[in-house]
Computed example of a mutant assay.
Amino acid sequence: MLRELAPRPLMPGNPYKPMAATVREVIQETGNIKTLRVVLDEPEAMQNFHYEPGQVGQLSVFGAGESTFVINSPPSQREYLQFSVMQAGEVTSAIHRLSVGDRVGVRAPLGNFFPYTDWKGKNIFFVGGGIGMAPIRTIMLHLLEHRADYGRISLLYGAKSPRDMAYSYETEDWLKREDLDCTLCIDNPYEGWPHRVGLIPNVLKELNPSPDNCVAVLCGPPIMIRFTVQALEGLNFAPENIVTTLEKRMKCGIGICGRCNIGSHYVCIDGPVFTWKQLQDLPPEM
């Protein structure tokens, strides 16, 4: 059974109508990932916008369509909304062509969020793979802003190569933080790389985090999720203490179109955040 839907911020007004926004900044993260920082055009809407870590938004390019992305700035960031986009199709290609000053549409916030209040007093072990670092970033920064509420906070972030690692301008600061145990890894040896080398599940086993009073939060490509979950289960993490996110075929974002349904559940409203235990209880079509 899925947990009862927690109260979450909902977008105001007509849920079908995007809010107009303007691109303030574009950051080239990797060869195929860009980060957009956008500001809602209506000052009152921007001032009153509220969301929780893990909630998503529909980012639209007029004439091209819209796609779902996590809002990966922490909720304390009130000056803009940040979305990181991997180029993979028509809509994401249109987003990658945007420049500062261009107009976009935003339907947000949508979906549930990481149950961080349930994690108080616990150790948190984050695992991010590639673009999967986007949702990890928002919840990790949120927890670090409320550091006294949690035990040990750790991060394992991996990518194919250093060139495929997003937020490289932040990772050095993460490595230096005394309140964050940060490990970086890449799949294969790379000249000058000073950190770990190996696939994320294998590096995870080497780090050997204790499952005692610990929640593991992982986001990344499906194959990385599958083998990382196996590694966590091998380390005796209980399914209810493994948390991940899905963005399966989301289209409308409000449970109407049925495109993201899994049995009687919808990723866009029952998710995108799930525990591994919840996912095991869903139909085999997952």
Rank of each mutant, 00 (worst) to 15 (best):
R8F: 15
P12F: 15
N14L: 08
P15L: 00
P15V: 01
Y16L: 07
K17N: 01
A20V: 02
T22C: 02
I27P: 04
G31W: 06
N32E: 10
K34Y: 03
T35E: 12
D41K: 02
A45N: 07
M46T: 06
F49E: 12
F49I: 02
Q55A: 13
Q58Y: 09
A64I: 07
E66V: 00
T68V: 09
V70Y: 03
I71L: 14
E79D: 13
L81R: 10
L81N: 07
Q82N: 04
S84D: 05
V85F: 09
E90H: 13
I95V: 06
I95P: 00
R97S: 07
V104K: 01
V106N: 05
A108Y: 15
P109V: 08
L110M: 09
G111C: 04
F113Q: 05
F114G: 11
D118Y: 12
G121N: 04
I124L: 15
V127N: 09
G129I: 13
G130W: 09
I131Y: 15
G132Y: 15
I136P: 10
I136E: 11
I139Q: 13
M140I: 01
L141H: 14
H142I: 12
E145Q: 13
I153N: 00
S154H: 01
S154T: 01
L156I: 11
G158Y: 02
S168R: 12
E172N: 01
L175T: 08
L175P: 10
R177Y: 14
R177H: 10
C182E: 06
C185F: 13
C185V: 10
D187V: 09
N188D: 10
W193T: 00
W193N: 00
W193C: 03
W193F: 05
W193M: 04
V197S: 07
P201L: 10
P201Y: 13
P201M: 08
N202C: 11
L204T: 12
P209E: 07
C214M: 12
C214Y: 08
V215F: 14
G220E: 12
I223Q: 07
T228M: 07
T228A: 04
T228E: 06
V229F: 05
Q230I: 08
L232I: 14
E233S: 13
L235Q: 02
N236M: 01
F237V: 05
N241F: 06
I242T: 05
I242Q: 04
I242A: 07
V243I: 08
T245P: 02
L246C: 03
C252W: 12
G253F: 14
I256R: 14
R259W: 06
R259F: 13
R259Q: 15
C268K: 14
I269F: 12
I269Q: 01
I269H: 08
F274Q: 00
T275A: 11
Q280L: 14
D281H: 06
L282P: 08
L282S: 02
L282H: 02
E285K: 05
M286G: 01
